[in-house]
Amino acid sequence: MAIGVLFGDLVKAFFTKPATQNYPFTKTIAPERLRGKLVYDPEKCIGCMLCMKDCPSNAIELLTVDKINKRFVMRYHPDRCVFCAQCVQLCRFNCLNMSNSLWEMASTSKEAFEVYYGREEDIAFLLERAAQPGINEPPCE
């Protein structure tokens, strides 16, 4: 039976650095394995579409520009992504990876949550096509 068992801890805590930090001013470094934003390498992709098929949250859209020459553009939605890394696991050609860079996801606009990966000319081509009236790119749903 005792009272104030925590007294020692109190004294210790008072004289040591606090465990919390002033968040936006000081930041911790993300660990190496952190599953952050998805990165896509269009050079290696063969378009098996497995990543799109098994994605639990429909965060990946692989748009075909030219199937024979293996030119694909990936539309990635970080706002839907659950960062499970299943796509990375599935990809046999190592063209998908998760970087540990993006780990704060807040934005005032929707644009930040639509990321295009691929060769620049392909993206430009796709965007142009989507802008034309009449031909509708599959909507984001």
């Binding site: 109190l10 805590a13 008072f14 040591t16 606090p18 465990a19 919390t20």
Partner: peptide, 9 residues
């Protein structure tokens, strides 16, 4: 109290 609880406060 925050410092006793190991927080910044």
């Amino acid at each position: 109290v925050a410092r006793f609880q190991s927080r910044v406060g």
